[in-house]
């Protein structure tokens, strides 16, 4: 029991500086983040409700718990550090981008309120960076590559891994821009630092995401959105 709590608190620091705390971004930037998050979330909720009805609730909730637990699945890298994933791209590939955004919003909001990992005023930006951008970018890069590969499994998994890497980098760039616009961190310092650190974190993200998808393709391909009938495009009953 304690071990879960400890593991959960450990994963709350996924790399330096992804979850922006309150006070680091200026009030207008934080407010813009909230407006953007609420707008995108409204669309996501409408689309997901239409596709899944009340079935969506247990599926999304358990999936949010899954992403949270999946972030505990670390692997040793070198010198006592360990890699793990954020999960935005994986969630988007498995559940579709809209459902993934709801799931990731729940995960990021949960961490912010329970563990003070990321601020409340800055929650809009954090959800935007880590939940929405990673899901959208990961999904878009994956769907762009997928038809070009004609079912070549290795190439598909390689493209998934690149898609996951790009999603982390985009989130890092976006976080740096928000800090720079707020005047909290000079762009020429924060951008290279964030992009550099997350280039490494992104490799872990890419490798785990591809391996997880490969595992599901081998064992339960029926669970993947592309293989399912169109009527339940985002989840199985």
């Amino acid at each position: 029991m304690m071990s879960i709590t400890q593991a959960a608190i450990q994963v709350t620091s996924d790399g330096p500086g992804m979850h922006i705390p309150d006070g680091f971004v200026s009030a207008p930037v934080a407010a813009a983040g909230w407006v953007a998050m609420v707008g995108i979330l409204a669309v996501a909720v409408r689309v997901t409700n239409r596709e899944l009805n009340e079935k969506a609730v247990p599926l999304m909730g358990v999936m949010a718990a899954f992403i949270f637990a999946a972030q505990m699945m670390n692997f040793p890298v070198a010198g006592g550090t360990s890699g793990h994933m954020l999960g935005g791209a994986l969630a988007a590939i498995l559940l579709g981008p809209w459902a993934a955004m709801i799931v990731m919003t729940a995960v990021v909001g949960f961490k912010s309120v329970l563990f003070q990992d990321g601020g409340i005023a800055a929650l809009g930006l954090n959800v935007l960076n880590m939940g929405m951008l990673t899901a959208l970018v990961g999904y878009a890069s994956y769907r762009t590559a997928e038809p070009l590969l004609r079912g070549n499994r290795t190439a598909l998994l390689a493209s998934v891994s690149v898609a996951a890497w790009i999603s982390v980098e985009v989130a890092a760039v976006s976080t740096s821009l928000q800090l720079a616009v707020s005047g909290s961190s000079p762009l020429d310092v924060v951008l290279p630092a964030m992009v550099g650190v997350h280039a490494l974190i992104g490799v872990g993200e890419g490798l785990i995401t591809a391996a997880a998808l490969g595992f599901i393709m081998t064992t339960r391909a029926d669970l993947l959105p592309q293989r399912r009938p169109a009527s339940s495009s985002t989840g199985r009953g």
């Binding site: 999946a70 670390n74 490798l207």
Partner: peptide, 15 residues
Amino acid sequence: ARVAGYMVGSLFVRS
């Protein structure tokens, strides 16, 4: 990383 990824995949199926 692949071992961790398989664990994540397995966790997804179970979830």
